[in-house]
């Protein structure tokens, strides 16, 4: 029993939503992506815990962290929840051809190594379908830089996708479901939350310490 690690049957999915208005279509898209992911993970036999972060609610703490270099206690909790999750769903509004400044600010305060191997599902919203490449020109390179594993399918929702003039060949619900199914397969393989390393952990062996020092 002690020799083998039991299969983890639970997955924690962090959701970062950078919408500014309330209610927000960015949050709406995030919620739909969560539902699809959760449904497919449950089908695969996983228990799912969702942690949702509305960046608007911590915007001031994010700015303070940029200025001081350390997070407030509540922001620190949020960062631990996001970086310690098994998977991340990240959704931003499109502002001036890119992710929002608040979204980028949040990414900027994370340790650059803290999302390594993190499965990420990217989503974005915008006023016009002509901005849909924001996913592949802005969001995907950002997470690739951080060595996260970005799911091939991201979802972009323009205002019209929510009603009046939807894409009837590939409607939004279909795209969301495809993204959720693909992402669930990613998340199933992710065990990163079970093997996070504490840089201040005392070395287990009596061998060399960090920096290559050898006991005399």
């Amino acid at each position: 029993m002690a020799a083998s690690t039991p299969m983890r049957t639970k997955r924690t999915v962090a959701v970062v939503s950078a919408g500014l208005s309330q209610p927000s279509s960015t949050r709406l898209l995030a919620d739909r992506l969560v539902q699809a992911t959760e449904r497919h993970l449950v089908e695969r036999g996983f228990e799912v815990e969702i942690v949702t972060v509305e960046l608007r609610e911590i915007a001031k703490d994010v700015t303070n962290n940029l200025l001081t270099g350390f997070p407030s206690p509540s922001l620190s909790t949020v960062i631990e929840q996001v970086t310690g999750a098994d998977a991340l769903i990240a959704v931003t509004p499109t502002f001036t051809t890119s992710y929002s400044g608040l979204f980028k600010s949040f990414m900027d305060i994370l340790d650059p190594s803290s999302l390594v191997e993190m499965p990420v599902l990217i989503g974005a919203t915008g006023g016009s379908p002509r901005h849909s490449l924001v996913l592949d020109y802005a969001m995907r390179p950002l997470f690739t830089y951080l060595h996260a594993l970005v799911a091939p399918t991201g979802v972009y929702a323009a205002s019209e996708d929510w009603g009046s003039n939807p894409d009837d060949v590939k409607p939004l619900p279909e795209r969301i479901d495809r993204a959720g199914a693909e992402f669930a397969a990613f998340v199933e393989r992710s065990d990163r939350a079970g093997r996070l390393v504490d840089p201040f952990a005392i070395p287990v062996s009596d061998g060399a310490g960090v920096g290559g020092f050898q006991a005399q």
Partner: peptide, 15 residues
């Protein structure tokens, strides 16, 4: 270093 960010009250509590 810390100006124009957190309030004096927040900063003295946290640091």
């Amino acid at each position: 270093v810390y100006g124009h960010g957190p309030s004096l009250e927040e900063f003295t509590e946290q640091t």
